[in-house]
Design a protein around this nucleic acid. Structure first.
Lengths: 130, 130
DNA sequence: CAAACTGTATTAATTATATAATACGGTTAA
DNA sequence: TTAACCGTATTATATAATTAATACAGTTTG
């Protein structure tokens, strides 16, 4: 069963996109595996304090991407083979890093200074490898 | 006069936030200086193909942050002393980098691998220092 | 079987974002 | 001075995102 304990709802963008990204990141990180049970629409909506329709929208889009499989009346599960995992991982790594690099260049920061900034921030943050 | 030639309207988030970020990044990068003229609401809306009210919303929020000054009937100008510039620059550097580092940690990427990924992407992108 | 849970669907209302069409009065420059 | 700008404000409309309240049929489990 996918855990949403580490999920934090942000004020940033649409909730359904945050949920989609969280699941994709989990798959890419390996913390969410294949044929793993997904929380029901009602259970996750109660846990996050949002509307069931919002969860349904996120799950439906994930299903259209072939990342989860739903059967009417039954529980929903992930459906990701090794190729799909690799594709999702690469997609997230490149898109997130490209956004950050673009920002650093706009701010006129060179690569070494950007690395130094990362070193300062990396250790102060929880989680991940040290 | 602030130039919007390099500005590209994305489908991502609200337009007024994109405009605010573009101006803040310009100030932080030094390409937008103090007491520099800002395009009129009507002129910028025509250039970007968006509604004048959307530009007004962005400018109004920038004025509330003390970053631009408007007088009814007259042109609007930036208002950023050295302290303000340093504050905005630090704010953008830290927030953007924190978002990226958080993403790398969620994906289970260690710092050295993250740096290697940046090296691959950095040179393939245009702009900024090499 | 029956109760509890599941995915799915529908309709209505709300908020944020953006557009559209104007209007008013202040500022600037020919 | 006067025409062309400027910032500002108002009202209406449209779409996207979200909430809300239900409802129905399929699946699972005791």
């Amino acid at each position: 069963m996918i855990s949403f304990e580490e999920f934090v709802l942000e004020d940033d963008g649409p909730i359904y996109l945050q949920i989609i990204k969280y699941i994709k990141q989990g798959i890419a990180a390996g913390t969410i595996g294949n044929q793993e049970e997904v929380p029901s629409r009602r259970a996750l909506s109660a846990l996050l304090g949002v509307n069931p329709n919002t969860i349904q929208k996120a799950y439906h889009m994930l299903e259209e991407e072939g990342i989860i499989v739903s059967r009417s009346g039954a529980k929903s599960f992930t459906s990701v083979d090794d190729d799909a995992i690799a594709r999702i991982r690469r997609e997230l790594l490149v898109s997130d890093t490209t956004v950050w690099v673009k920002s650093m260049k706009l701010l006129g920061v060179n690569r070494d200074d950007a690395f130094e900034l990362v070193r300062q921030i990396w250790n102060d943050m929880a989680g991940g490898e040290e």
